[in-house]
Design a protein around this nucleic acid. Structure first.
Lengths: 185, 185
DNA sequence: AGGGCCATGTAATAAGTTACATGATTTT
DNA sequence: AAAATCATGTAACTTATTACATGGCCCT
C-alpha cells in the first residue's frame, strides 16, 4: 500500500487559516510549522494546480497595485470533506525517524579525536539554541499577531512540542560534552 | 551545491564495527541506529556495489554450510581515508526537520472534536512508549552483548539522545491531554 | 544601481520506498 | 507443511531538492 501524500492536505488546511497563495503557504510552513514540516515551491505549486483540477480548491487571479499579481486559492465543499476525512483517517507507519547527521557522525566518533567530537557537539548545541530562540519568537508571533483564536490553541500545542524536544536535546549536549571533557583530564 | 550522500559513509562506518554484509548492516541500522537513521535494501545493495567499484571496499564471497552464501565487505585503505574525511567535514544545512504527521493533524485540529484530538494524542503516546522501551532494550543489548568497547561509548551517547527526546515527547503528551480534558469539563 | 521581498512556475536530478524475484535453511 | 530467518538483488514509482527562469515593486 502506498502511503497517502500529505502535501495536498496541508495546503487545504492552510486555506482554512486565511493563507491563500502558494507563496504565503510556504512562508507559513517555514515559520509556524517549521518544527515539524518543511516544503519547497517545487511541491506547492504543482500540488495547488492538482487540487484545483480535482475540484478540491478554486483559484481566482487577484490584481494588486503595489505588488505582483497573485492567485488566491479557496477550498471548495468537496475540499472541506477531503480535509476532514484525512484528519479522521488513522496514521499508519508508526513514528517518524528523524535522520540526524550529527548523531550519525558521533556514532562513528572513535575514528576521530575526542576534541573534534566535542567541537561537533558544541556546534550542534549552537544550532539547537538558535532553533530554540526561533521557536520562542514564533510563539510570540502566534500569541500577539493575527491568528484566529480557534487555531491558536493547537498551533501553540505543537510549538511546545518543538520547544520541549529542543530543550531536551540541549540538556543532552551539556551532559555529553561534560562526560567527554571529564575523560580528557 | 548538492548535499553529499551519506549512505556510503554509513556503510563504510559499519564495516569498521564488524558488520560486513548488506543484510547485517540493515539489521544493525534498524536497531542500533534506529533513533536517528533508517534505510532500505534498495539503498544498501546498490551503494555497496558502488563502493566496491570505486575501490573504497572489497568483497569476498563466503560460503556457509548452515545458511545461504553471503558477501563479506571490508573497507580498503582508500575507504578508511574517505570515512575520516567525511567525519572531519562540516555538517551543512542546519538541523534536520522531523516531519511529524501527528503534529500536522493536531495543527488542524479545530476541524475535529476535542475527543478525537485526545484519542490521537493518546495513540501518539502509546507509540512513544513502545519506542522508549525499545530503546531501553537496545541499550541493554549494547552494554551486554558483543560491541567493541571503543564503539560502545558513542553508541550509548546517541541512544541517550533518543531516550531523552522520547521522554520529553511523552511529557508533552501528558500535558496536552490534561489541558484538552480540562476544557471539556 | 543593487538588494530584498513579492510572486509563480518548470525541469533535472537525487533520494527513498515498495514491490517483486529468487532460493536455501531452520524452526515450529 | 508452513513460517521464519538468512541472504541478495532489481525495477518501478513516489517524493523532494535544487537550479533555473521571469519580472515588478520598494527601499537605501
Amino acid at each position: 500500500m502506498a502511503k497517502e501524500a500529505q502535501t495536498p492536505f496541508i495546503l487545504l488546511g492552510l486555506m482554512t487559516t486565511g493563507c491563500s497563495t502558494g507563496y504565503s503557504m510556504k512562508q507559513l510552513i517555514d515559520t509556524g510549522l517549521s518544527h515539524f514540516w518543511k516544503i519547497s515551491y517545487g511541491q506547492i505549486y504543482p500540488a495547488l494546480k492538482k487540487l484545483t483540477d480535482e475540484g478540491l480548491a478554486e483559484v481566482q487571479q487577484e490584481t494588486q497595485e503595489d505588488k505582483p499579481d497573485k492567485k488566491v486559492y479557496n477550498m471548495t465543499p468537496k475540499g472541506k470533506k477531503a480535509l476532514e476525512q484525512w484528519l479522521a483517517s488513522p496514521i499508519e507507519g508508526g513514528l517518524p525517524v528523524q535522520k540526524n547527521e550529527w548523531l550519525l557522525k558521533l556514532f562513528f566518533s572513535r575514528h576521530e579525536s575526542t576534541e573534534t567530537a566535542i567541537v561537533k557537539i558544541k556546534q550542534y548545541k549552537e544550532q539547537l539554541q538558535q532553533r530554540f530562540s526561533l521557536y520562542k519568537q514564533i510563539e510570540k508571533m502566534i500569541t500577539e499577531c493575527a491568528v484566529r483564536s480557534e487555531d491558536e490553541r493547537f498551533w501553540l500545542f505543537t510549538l511546545r512540542h518543538g520547544l520541549k524536544l529542543t530543550s531536551a536535546a540541549l540538556d543532552w549536549c551539556d551532559e555529553v560534552i561534560d562526560e567527554l571533557q571529564k575523560e580528557g583530564e
